[in-house]
Computed example of a mutant assay.
Amino acid sequence: MRTARALLAEREGVYGVLPEWIEAVEPAVLKATGAPAPGDLGGEQLRRWGSSEVWRLSYGLRSVIVKRGSDTQSTEGTAYERYVRPLRLPAPELIELVHLDGAVLLVMEDVGRVTLEQEPSLEGFLAAVDLLAEIRSVPVDGASEFDADRLSDLAARVAEGRPEPASGLVERVENRLRPAVADLHRMVRPRVVHGDYVGKNLVTDGRRWTPVDWPLTYLAPQLPDLYTLTREAVALGHDRDHLVTRYCEAAGTDRTLVERQTLIGGCGFTLRALAWVIEEGVHTVPSSKDWITPLLDELDGLLDQLP
């Protein structure tokens, strides 16, 4: 039920087009922006999906990002508590966290108005590679959260949800991907994975780049983040070899190992994306059903590259 205050605010034009849930984080927003009252705030909607809504609220030159996440997007607060804050990862400062009606509301530092998706320059992709090497250089305590069993579970869920186009998927994952993942886990300690390391989640203020949107973060030795970043860069005409070479130099690691981590990470990324689309995306983002066949084809190509 809408509160009397919210109804009054709407009638008086205090919130304008802003959603009612922003009222729950109003004190933190006013303090961070210095706005005297809610009616003095400017609002710009940056994104609205079924499980995520993002706004920029501003007063003069000061602004914050306010997010509401549900379903898979509701875990960003946990990611900040477990990884981002204690490991001092390059991410926006979390100013306020509120749980409300099965969702999480976050007030965050505004780290810039331009994304790598909007301005996909080579310099931006190279900066993103350097940031990724920085994130992966941070030692962490804890076991991998994306091992062979997790991959087998994802493959089973995808096959169950789409039995015809996913025919034979479980067998291929068990016979080819599972041994490769198990072997990698014996060789490499887990590090932080952002989980959605793509252009729309890399933001610049003109001076520095910052990864945003951390709800899918986990620990693993794989490199899905490098896979998704170079995948996008290649689609835009950039040279993959240049980016991977830059990563190896920045991380001080072996090229053969990085390629192996990236390939296995790509398999995990496509499986995870397929499971999300089939189980959630088709309901929250109906157009995502068109991603299923291309993702299955992409996964087939990656599995073919495994030894």
Results as ranks from 00 to 15, higher is better:
M1Q: 10
M1G: 10
T3W: 14
A6R: 07
A9I: 06
V14A: 15
Y15L: 14
V17A: 15
V17T: 15
E23V: 13
E26W: 15
P27K: 04
P38R: 15
P38M: 14
W49K: 08
G50K: 03
S51A: 10
V54W: 07
S58K: 05
G60I: 00
R62I: 04
S63T: 02
V66C: 02
S70C: 06
S74F: 09
T75I: 10
G77S: 03
A79F: 11
Y83I: 02
A91E: 11
P92C: 07
I95T: 04
H99W: 08
L105M: 00
L106I: 08
V107Y: 14
M108L: 15
D110L: 09
V114N: 06
Q118R: 11
P120C: 10
P120Y: 10
E123C: 06
E134Y: 02
I135Y: 08
I135K: 08
S137K: 02
D141I: 07
D141Y: 12
A143S: 05
A143H: 10
F146Q: 11
A148D: 05
D149T: 05
R150K: 14
R150N: 12
A156Y: 05
E160G: 08
E160M: 10
R162Y: 12
S167I: 04
G168N: 02
R178S: 12
M187Y: 13
V188G: 04
H194K: 07
T204P: 00
T204L: 10
W209M: 03
W209C: 00
W214T: 03
A220C: 08
L223K: 10
L223Q: 13
T228Y: 12
E232C: 01
V234F: 06
D241I: 13
H242M: 15
T245S: 14
Y247S: 01
A251I: 02
T253N: 07
D254H: 10
D254S: 00
R260S: 01
R260K: 13
T262G: 01
I264M: 05
G266Y: 09
C267M: 02
G268S: 14
G268I: 04
F269D: 10
A275C: 09
V277R: 02
V277L: 04
E280H: 15
G281I: 02
H283Y: 12
T284C: 12
T284R: 15
S288E: 08
W291E: 13
T293I: 10
D304W: 05
Q305I: 03
L306T: 02
